[in-house]
Amino acid sequence: MKHLSENIEEYLETIYRLSESSKNASTTKISKEMGIAPASVTQMLKKLDSEGYVKYSPYRGAVLTEKGYRIARRITRKHRLLERFLHDVLGIRRDRIHRQACEMEHSLSDDAERALCQLLNMPGECPDANPIPACDFKFQTCGECIELKDTDVEEIGCREGNLKSLTEMDEKQAGRVSFIRGDYRVLRRLMDMGITLGAPIRMIKRAPLSGPIEVEVRGSRVALGRDIADNVFIDTES
């Protein structure tokens, strides 16, 4: 993968974060979030558009492409894992962990990211309750990752496509369950609902905010709380 500057990674991460609550990340919101003049933001968005990381439209803002989404998701994952580590293990105050994580995320290797995730017992959200994206490694469960803990990530390889958690899917969108985060208790709970690896699944209804999510799996409708839906990841291109 081409090495990107920290500045570009910060832009992509910011767009990802803003896109969690709105499809388009406006120039004004990016400017405010990053503390950068709107004119400079516009110039960078045009550059990111020309390089295939975003689709930029004047007055509407930017949307991540598949290429940009993959990078943004990876950086966001490292950032939120670091926030958990700084808060839970080191006891850093919550009002200080964001800036510290920003400084550390760009230099955190994939091996270190994986080890950190295992150390923290595969967390699903950061201290601010924002979901932690799935890893890019070729695992179907966290159990596989733990079993192969002595194997380098270069040998394991990365998935080709982007996975979305159930909470990220649009209504009526469909795909197959490709990765489940958590221990055997999570797997068992989902199995009892008929949600297993490889199962076709379709989003029926997303309640606002913290409400339940309704999906169709194996011909039945199932309602899931956000706490568990954040840990079921779908390959929507299958």
Results as ranks from 00 to 15, higher is better:
residue 1 M to A: 14
residue 237 E to N: 06
residue 190 L to N: 09
residue 28 T to S: 06
residue 102 C to L: 15
residue 140 Q to K: 12
residue 23 K to R: 12
residue 116 L to E: 06
residue 185 R to L: 09
residue 132 I to Y: 00
residue 29 K to R: 09
residue 114 R to L: 02
residue 110 D to K: 12
residue 144 E to H: 05
residue 186 V to W: 05
residue 4 L to Y: 15
residue 108 L to S: 05
residue 94 R to Q: 13
residue 55 K to N: 12
residue 182 G to P: 11
residue 167 T to K: 06
residue 87 H to I: 05
residue 10 E to C: 05
residue 139 F to Q: 01
residue 16 Y to P: 02
residue 214 E to Y: 14
residue 178 S to E: 04
residue 121 N to D: 14
residue 108 L to W: 03
residue 168 E to M: 11
residue 108 L to G: 07
residue 204 I to F: 06
residue 46 K to L: 06
residue 13 E to F: 13
residue 102 C to P: 01
residue 202 R to Y: 00
residue 106 H to P: 01
residue 150 D to I: 04
residue 81 L to E: 15
residue 97 I to C: 08
residue 238 S to Q: 09
residue 19 S to H: 04
residue 49 D to T: 01
residue 145 C to E: 10
residue 137 F to I: 05
residue 33 E to K: 10
residue 207 A to L: 09
residue 131 P to Q: 06
residue 39 A to Q: 13
residue 115 A to E: 13
residue 109 S to Y: 14
residue 73 R to N: 08
residue 204 I to S: 10
residue 80 R to Q: 12
residue 207 A to W: 07
residue 16 Y to C: 02
residue 233 F to L: 03
residue 156 I to P: 06
residue 72 A to F: 08
residue 56 Y to R: 00
residue 191 M to Q: 14
residue 160 E to M: 10
residue 93 R to G: 15
residue 22 S to K: 14
residue 90 L to E: 15
residue 212 P to I: 03
residue 125 E to T: 04
residue 15 I to C: 10
residue 20 E to K: 14
residue 162 N to E: 08
residue 145 C to F: 00
residue 48 L to E: 06
residue 12 L to P: 02
residue 6 E to R: 10
residue 189 R to H: 11
residue 215 V to S: 04
residue 219 G to E: 13
residue 156 I to A: 08
residue 94 R to V: 07
residue 190 L to R: 07
residue 54 V to P: 12
residue 195 I to C: 10
residue 163 L to C: 07
residue 1 M to G: 10
residue 175 G to P: 11
residue 162 N to L: 03
residue 132 I to L: 03
residue 60 R to A: 07
residue 26 S to Q: 04
residue 48 L to Q: 04
residue 45 L to K: 02
residue 150 D to L: 03
residue 185 R to W: 09
residue 71 I to E: 15
residue 181 R to E: 07
residue 61 G to F: 12
residue 21 S to P: 00
residue 78 K to F: 08
residue 215 V to T: 07
residue 162 N to P: 04
residue 21 S to M: 05
residue 105 E to P: 00
residue 172 K to Y: 04
residue 123 P to N: 03
residue 151 T to R: 13
residue 39 A to L: 04
residue 81 L to H: 13
residue 186 V to C: 11
residue 144 E to V: 07
residue 120 L to G: 03
residue 169 M to N: 09
residue 236 T to W: 07
residue 97 I to F: 13
residue 157 G to C: 07
residue 155 E to T: 11
residue 122 M to F: 12
residue 181 R to F: 01
residue 69 Y to T: 00
residue 235 D to A: 08
residue 225 G to V: 02
residue 159 R to A: 09
residue 52 G to S: 10
